[in-house]
Simulated assay, not measured.
Amino acid sequence: MNDKISNLSELLAVAGDRTVAVVRGITDEQLAAATPCGEYDVDALVGHLLQVVENFQELARKRDADFGTAPERLTGEWRDRFAAETVRLVAAWAAPDAEEGMSGAMGLPARTVGAMALGDLTVHGWDLARATGQPYEPDAAVVAAVGAEFAALAPMARSMGVFGEPVAVAEGAGPFAELLGLTGRDPRWTRPETSSSTAAAGT
């Protein structure tokens, strides 16, 4: 993993706090709204992100995780549940041996797997914010760390359908716009009711 990730759990906490704030700001009326992840509406994307924060806790403990099931539809106090599971994710990656060795069925270094969780929190936080009209400003250190890691993972991620085809961004658009483009997102995406833009491919 890039040296800029010096304390993964601290960066997860920073990214988690910002995405939790977005999730708490989602109204029930917005759950059917489209997102920059073309295959997910807001409800499904929050459900997917819940799977992410739960499964990456297991990966931190070097256990198997199942990403093969469709995300559950949101019920009950899902905002509180997401916040609580994000706290557990941070704690799991703060364990002394979490970043050591290999983790996951793909046999990736544990620190790379942790960076994938960090990237999902950050990019999907933007997805949800953009879909629901909320502000989202990622932490610069998080963006630097995720961008370096995702650049190396991009070919594999595209072959697996995790990333869409890269989207060109304007010169000087900044590191976060470049990260979004790398994952197949158009940083200019806006909600369909306010723009004719279409969702970018990828998750």
Score class of each variant (00 low, 15 high):
1 M>V: 13
1 M>W: 06
5 I>P: 00
6 S>E: 14
8 L>E: 03
16 G>D: 12
18 R>K: 15
23 V>Q: 12
24 R>L: 02
25 G>H: 07
30 Q>E: 13
37 C>P: 00
42 V>W: 09
47 G>Y: 10
50 L>D: 11
51 Q>P: 04
52 V>F: 02
54 E>A: 13
58 E>W: 05
59 L>R: 08
63 R>P: 00
65 A>D: 01
65 A>P: 01
68 G>M: 03
69 T>H: 14
72 E>D: 12
73 R>F: 01
76 G>S: 08
79 R>M: 07
97 D>F: 09
97 D>A: 14
98 A>Y: 08
105 A>Y: 00
106 M>D: 12
114 G>Y: 13
115 A>K: 03
115 A>S: 15
116 M>V: 15
117 A>M: 10
119 G>I: 05
125 G>H: 10
134 Q>G: 07
138 P>A: 10
140 A>E: 15
142 V>G: 09
143 V>Y: 06
143 V>R: 12
147 G>W: 01
150 F>G: 01
150 F>Q: 04
153 L>Q: 13
155 P>L: 04
158 R>M: 15
161 G>N: 07
169 V>A: 07
170 A>E: 15
180 L>G: 03
180 L>Q: 06
187 P>E: 11
188 R>L: 14
189 W>L: 12
191 R>L: 12
192 P>Y: 12
195 S>V: 03
203 T>R: 14
